[in-house]
Design a binder for these strands. Sequence first.
DNA 1: TTGTACGCGTTATCAC
DNA 2: GTGATAACGCGTACAA
Lengths: 337, 337
Amino acid sequence: MSYTIKDVAKHANVSIATVSRVLNGQSGYSKATEEKVLVAIKELGYQPNAFARGLISRKSNSLGILFPEVSSQFSSKILRGVEEAAHRLDSSVIVCNTASHGQRTIKYLQLLTEKRVDGILFVSETITEEYYKKLESMQIPVVLISTESYQYPLPFVKVDDKHAAFTATDYLVKMGHSKIGMISGNKDDIIAGQPRIDGYKQALTQRGLPIKEENIVQSQGFSFKDGFTGLPKLLEQSPGLTAIFAASDALALGAISSAYKLGIRIPDHLSIIGYDNLPIAEMAIPPLTTVAQPLEEMGMVAAEMLFTMMDQGRRVESRIMPHSVIERESVKEIKFT
Amino acid sequence: MSYTIKDVAKHANVSIATVSRVLNGQSGYSKATEEKVLVAIKELGYQPNAFARGLISRKSNSLGILFPEVSSQFSSKILRGVEEAAHRLDSSVIVCNTASHGQRTIKYLQLLTEKRVDGILFVSETITEEYYKKLESMQIPVVLISTESYQYPLPFVKVDDKHAAFTATDYLVKMGHSKIGMISGNKDDIIAGQPRIDGYKQALTQRGLPIKEENIVQSQGFSFKDGFTGLPKLLEQSPGLTAIFAASDALALGAISSAYKLGIRIPDHLSIIGYDNLPIAEMAIPPLTTVAQPLEEMGMVAAEMLFTMMDQGRRVESRIMPHSVIERESVKEIKFT
DNA sequence: TTGTACGCGTTATCAC
DNA sequence: GTGATAACGCGTACAA
């Protein structure tokens, strides 16, 4: 069994109150007793009990983070940032893999309530009414990452999807392309689907280029596989394309892989720009030009927002994070003569 | 503020003891009172307080897992498995990113002790004396993942690195190669460095092939960058190679990328086999043939080991997990005539 | 079948 | 400066 504050008190010949005081860096004791206590603590190897502390303080110094899929590169990067920020503030992070499953998510929320986490981070998930009610009843800060809610007033941190998609497409135009296709995620995805399509279209419009529906292929999700099957479909619908905007790096890599199989050379025959700037982007052949989201930073910022909400009970403004295109080698400039 | 068991008791007109009993599925109450209590719980939306529970039970229903780098694909996969197993047993997982930093690791261990986690998982780290002492003083189960300790009696789950490296190399031989190089990690890495080199050498020896030191290039770590710089170095030392065993998928991808820049075609000019079977392996161009480690399963198995140690106080046997080569397209068979 | 009361390890409010 | 002691919310031995 481990030692308690009582043991320390006895060992140092003081009261537990005094031990508690030096433990928490309060005032009200002489230098001499402080020394005594510190020695006792060290000698016994005493470790405060977070349960007892939490019972009184009503704080756990931990936060919960929910992902649809923890093991994606996207999630990992965010987790990394969150963990870093949490660590700096002496907090721990509890990870939950919801698998986009309602029941499972609710169960996690339940668990996190019992553990009295100080705050909750929701990544890439749509907030249903059920979730929101549960969150509301928990009475703790919540911050959304890489998603937002139109129905519920939850602060979020994400990039502007439409704007970023605009930037990606516009980059292709600037590089001399005019026949630009898109491999998009699901249109029904209000957050990452439609807005990116809108951004793509707006860039074309603004540049005086026509919008053709056959230049867009929608896929189930944002995965490698989706990109792999998406490219041939798109090229069949619309053979003349010289460049493609893929709505995620995974989609882009899938497309590149597919192109390789088809004997289409990137970027000589076809240019591709991705979205996310995951580590895989620079591992691709050729290295993928892409629109970067500052994922780690987003994680850190979200965690920090959570902490200011916790500590100061303050409402907090949502944050739109900057995106930027990372030029690598998957887009070729077309020169005019 | 949230409701307590006292509130529920009052609401249901019973004592807190009774509430506690139905809460914990014990016996000793009539169907009628059970009903009353359940209703009260539901009406109030009562949530048990894990602090109070933990104070008595001395259990937190959570475990800590330490990674040198949470955001690698390798770590993520393991985390996914651990999380899954933990979820099934109503436990939570607290992630810690040690950054391979001693001080930071110790601090995490400290934190985890205070939170009274039920067990600890250590991933890919060398257990120093300092760590071990700390772990010992914590008096809780520990399981190592993808690493092991020769000095301290800690159970582990990993694949047999030497054997897996042997298998990889042997596969290349079977495919008709005889001039086989290796891009290895650091020789000083007792766990993932030297053993893989040994496995490589043993395969050659056993097949009657000569071992030449110039056919091996060592790198700092197992990263993409290491592979990228390693390949040209290796090819300079030893120009006649027809196949290469890379000690990790990241190394392999780096090498492939480098080969691409050099105009060397994989697998036509050079065959490459990797190690790990991360998701990136199938995204590579060409898709990477590699030796697979069952990472998710390793995570699950390790977590389960932890639980049996916790619940039954039993010692537990280390587990060597099976590896297997995943044939994709980065290795070409050489036919003899 | 049910209720009372003590203890888990801390912090905080009093007195001294 | 220092020390009792009452919470914090729950489980459980014991009594009824």
